[in-house]
Design a protein around this nucleic acid. Structure first.
Length: 412
RNA sequence: CGGGGUGUGGUGUAAUGGUAGCAUACCGCCUUCGGGAGGCGGCAGCCCGAGUUCGAAUCUCGGCAUCCCGACCA
């Protein structure tokens, strides 16, 4: 991508209202734009990051059998009434059509997925099954905050699993835990993310959250110094000892909930009378689990963790581009050489953002590169040209390497 | 939803009752080109409504927006 063609621009100063680190950098770098409180536009570079995250999630969820579908945001009132959530779900946005029909904008999709899967599943032979989607969620948050960490409309991955027994649900639940850790690791926040015991709502004793340590987080968790399991403050009073290893030393941290998993059991299959026929001919309620990850929140958490005073430092797997090619000087020789490097690297399948802007000074280009946080910076200039080299610097490192220009550049 | 802060060109700011100024961005011309370059010229603004006053960006009231703290968070 030629940077001169990007319709967005970086800005030197963040709008003064933006206090959170992720909002400041993401807006300044031109990754997102705020439409209103808690409602964001993802711009070309920001969308690329979101898509990288999406790809990782899809790979890991498909690896544990998830089949992707896409459910609508308009969910009829009738479905919400069936689970009684039309009345009690306070964050539900409600909309009315011209002829009076009412809908709740999907804030979660149990009310759609359960009757959907019910249409196809009637026997123990059809179970287990795992269905997920990546789709916009709407929640009427009383207080949207912290940039893209807590918004009113956001892309979410929600996976639902259906089982013949609690035991089978338990087995899959453990698999999902492992898949989640792979996802967070690949997104570059594996070290900061802790499995956290949290309240289970009304349907099971506990649920598990994946809490990522950052001062921008809104939750307080207690991490076992021995095994790393965390306990959410909301249920800490129930635990003087670590339920995993029995040790009693905890450290307190602020964290953001990057994902959560619930054993829903029969909470939603029951109101829909979702039974299956067991091997012995009896009818039993389907057991169910749900597993969520908010993509923008994950992206925001990455920024909160991986940045310095100059800008974002994207982990490689979710960076919008792998390399940022910077042309310094506009004479023909330099242009030709940079163009050659650009073509060469593109041919190698490396995603490049090529800063070909001719009206920007070197200082501004470097500052933009630091702000946007692409992992590798490649510079072509009079200086590098003399040595028939390009200069390569990693965003998270200080040293600069010179690499000989041969027919196939070896950057990484 | 309770409390607090803030609303001035696209962005950041100044003017505290009396001519809306500066920086940056943007446009034009010229010079520059390894860490947000310089010169000259140009475009662009007081959140909305009511009130007080000879006169309101400035004071008062109401609304709206936004940020922060708290509560809430299937």
């Amino acid at each position: 991508m030629r940077q001169s063609k990007l319709f967005t621009k970086t800005v030197k100063q963040a709008p003064k209202d933006e206090k959170s680190v992720n909002a400041q950098f993401l807006i300044r770098a031109g990754f997102v734009d705020k439409l209103s409180a808690g409602v964001y536009v993802f711009l070309p570079t920001g969308l690329r990051v979101l898509e990288k995250i999406e790809k990782i999630i899809c790979e890991e969820i498909q690896a544990i059998g998830g089949q992707r579908i896409l459910m609508p945001a308009l969910v009829p009132k009738k479905n919400w009434e069936q689970t009684n959530r039309w009345k009690i779900f306070e964050e539900l946005y409600k909309v009315k059509g011209k002829s009076g029909q009412e809908y709740g904008l999907g804030a979660t999709h149990e009310e759609v997925i359960v009757p959907l899967v019910q249409k196809y599943v009637s026997s123990y032979k059809d179970l287990p099954c795992y269905v997920y989607q990546i789709q916009d969620k709407f929640r009427d948050e009383l207080r949207a905050k912290s940039g893209i960490l807590r918004s009113k409309e956001f892309v979410m991955k929600d996976l639902y699993s259906f089982h013949t027994s609690e035991k089978d649900l338990d087995i899959y639940y453990e698999k999902a835990k492992k898949a989640y850790f792979k996802i967070f690791k690949r997104c570059g926040i594996g070290l900061q993310t802790h499995l956290t015991l949290a309240s289970g709502g009304s349907f099971s004793k506990y649920s598990h959250e994946f809490q990522t340590i950052t001062s921008a987080g809104e939750d307080t968790i207690y991490i076992c110094e021995n095994c790393g399991l965390a306990i959410n403050k909301e249920i800490k009073q129930e635990h003087s000892k670590c339920p995993e290893c029995g040790k009693t030393k905890f450290r307190q941290e602020k964290a953001i909930e990057a994902g959560n998993i619930f054993k829903l059991r029969t909470k939603y299959t029951e109101p829909f009378n979702f039974f299956f026929t067991a091997q012995d001919g009896s009818k039993k309620l389907v057991e169910m689990g749900c597993y969520g990850i908010g993509l923008p929140r994950l992206m925001g958490a990455v920024v909160e963790i991986h940045h310095d005073d100059k800008g974002i430092i994207w982990p490689k797997e979710i960076a919008p581009y792998q390399a940022h090619l910077i042309q310094i000087g506009n004479n023909l020789k330099i242009k030709k050489q940079t163009e050659k490097v650009y073509q060469d690297l593109e041919k190698q399948g490396i995603e490049i953002l090529y800063d070909d802007r001719e009206d920007k000074s070197p200082g501004e280009k470097f500052a933009d590169a630091d702000l946007m946080g692409i992992p590798y910076r490649i510079v072509v200039s009079e200086k590098t040209l003399e040595k028939n080299c390009v200069e390569v610097k990693q965003r998270n490192k200080k040293q600069i390497r010179l690499i000989k220009c041969i027919s196939k550049l070896q950057i990484f």
